[in-house]
Design a protein around this nucleic acid. Structure first.
Lengths: 224, 224, 224, 224
DNA sequence: AATGAATGAGGTTTCATTCAT
DNA sequence: CATGAATGAAACCTCATTCAT
């Protein structure tokens, strides 16, 4: 038993070794700028070994993207299920997680963006593209979570009701996702003016929050 | 004279011919997925000629990006200097231009994003990277324009004053730019729920506008 | 004893398991288009095991070819030793066997042809190429059998005597073997004209038979 | 003019240089055993150049096969249109050509056989598989030529009429083509018994000829 | 100015074979 | 015995770039 276990463990370790090697390279240079040679060298393994563990450069990439999005999803789930359970509380948890993810895992963020850039042919049900379908599932799932939060907030009267939940969700999604895209130029401006990123982000989130909350509480409810 | 003129004119025509050929290809497939061969074929010129006019694939790419950003800048300038000159009016003009650019020139948008993605080594003053410095200049310039609008709006009391102009400018910039990134997933959600993009964008801009305008006019002025 | 026997039996079973797995793959795709990986997977064994039982991909291939040629030889022996024992009868048996083999075991046929195609280095007495020498032996043996039939037929006056037995044997061999080569183009022609393969083959064999039989019985005997 | 001509000539020379390099390698080792690297080295050119002139290894191979079959076809045409124009005369010319081709160009013969071996996917009208269609055309054409000869011979009463022209053509085709396959074992047998190849082949052709000619001139005509 | 042939490094991938366990 | 992870050479092919003309 132990022997099989050890083998299995070693196998998994190798996989992770390769994945993390590839990860760091992809993080730094992006999909196209990384070669399988580099990955192999970085993992201190032969090129053949890489292909033994992963069918493809693409497959390896997709797995890493999947890891990133799984991590993100998990962070979201945990954040929402813990702490303040008020409507606005859950929204704040979500916002915080988005910021945290983008700060702690900018590499994953970048790869996820590359994945979604249209660079890859995703929708041919070739086979063994399980990773792809899973990635898409997580993406959809997270949209649904946001929608759910907003729907409840509207029902409870905590959130503005002059927009449909879906529409509001989309708008908020755009706004939230956009902090993740730390446009480099914005970074420059920040340092140039001596503004702390934290402060800015807090202000940003407050404003987004003000957008989501009912601005016209007296306005009669809309039907859509 | 006329002979030299004609030559000069022809040279310029060739340049534009190459650029527009490369443009359409880059627009569709992205930097890495386009080969110099394709560009040459598309331009109905030989590969050698491409390299005669442009030192590099990168150089050619940078010029196209520069074109895009110049165009954007020009659109911004024109919009701001014409029409309604009130604070909110100028802001609306700017918003409109952002939307218009992202709708009319999605290709440029995509290339600009690629340029800023860290994919290219921009900051080594290797040599004639004049295009790069110009691109950066325009980027900065457009931030400055937004800052200026906001600063005036705050001074006039039209815009909220609980944030420094710079900070508010950055926040608005993030929000405005983010609408340009039509994350494909958002597109899906839209079509899935039968929401018209135009409608959503108008709502989005209204909300951004509400963010910029003084929400608490009675609040005593902040000092920063 | 029984333990050793079982082991021995199991070993032999494994061998056959591997061989038949490889066979079916080689039959379908040919030597170069089959990988050891595929063979292992098809045999539900590990690649290492394949190499434990067979030194080489080549060795495995040669053994299969040898099997094929042994089978062919056995069919020939059986056919000739049973049934009509007249000269022409034995020849007909042989013809029938050739056709039958090519129809029932096209895979072996194809591999035998690949073996003889010059693709492999057969004649360096490198080492344990016992299979190769055996294959060659069987090939020669079967030529000898045909020669013997013809020699007797000539002696008995049933076959034409204007050619030396060896020469006639070679000629007949060429003609007989050639019917095994189902040139695809011939297949097309057949179906195109609605000719049944059986019918054609029967006519073919009749003609070959007419070649072997004395056409000019009155002609004075030739000396060679 | 001369300059363009020279370029064109040089281009053609390079092409031929590559083709003949590849040819000799393919002749010796067969398609799978030859690498593009070898071809390049043999041609004293870089690998890139080979791919500049030929899209593929396959494409290069097909062109060589086509050359071979064109050569064969031309030899057939010339042979049939010159010399003795009697039915049997034309048939003899054809036989002679077949023998001559197999003797003078055994390499082409081998490649043609490899081409027809099912190793290549020939029937997907991918595109630019012009060579393939041409090869097939020539193959068909040569079958048609033989059929025509036989049909006329039957009409004139020179050839046996108990078989349909098509069937007889197929049979003769099989017999003729089979001399081209110099099974190595036959070579051994020949040298072993001190038989000259020429003599054997002449006898062989005589026998094939006797097959084609009416054996039973008195037999009433068959209808098919 | 313009061409396009030539290059060769580098990319992804395959595969027979070895070897520690 | 059996395994299957690891190897690394070699396969095919791409492509930015150079250079003689």
């Amino acid at each position: 038993m132990t022997i099989a276990d050890r083998k299995e463990r070693e196998r998994e370790e190798r996989r992770m070794q390769i994945i993390s090697s590839a990860e760091s390279l992809f993080f730094q240079n992006g999909y196209d700028q990384v070669s399988m040679d580099q990955i192999a060298r970085n993992a201190e393994l032969s090129k053949g070994t890489i292909f033994f563990y992963f069918k493809n450069k693409e497959a390896l990439f997709f797995i890493i993207v999947l890891q990133g999005i799984r991590l993100f999803h998990q962070m979201v789930i945990e954040a929402i299920n813990s702490g303040d359970m008020s409507d606005i509380g859950r929204f704040r948890s979500l916002s915080t997680v988005v910021v945290r993810f983008s700060r702690e895992y900018p590499g994953y963020l970048s790869l996820i963006r590359q994945f979604k850039s249209g660079r890859f042919t995703i929708y041919n049900s070739d086979s063994e593209k399980d990773e792809v379908t899973e990635i898409i599932w997580y993406t959809d799932e997270m949209t649904r979570i946001l929608e759910e939060i907003i729907r409840k907030g509207i029902q409870n009267g905590s959130f503005r009701s002059d927009l449909s939940p879906v529409e509001l969700a989309i708008i908020i999604k755009i706004m939230l996702y956009s902090i993740m895209d730390k446009h480099p130029e914005i970074q420059w401006t920040l340092t140039e003016h001596g503004i702390k990123e934290d402060v800015l982000i807090n202000h940003y989130l407050e404003l987004v929050e003000s957008v989501i909350c009912s601005p016209y509480p007296n306005k009669e409810k809309q039907v859509y």
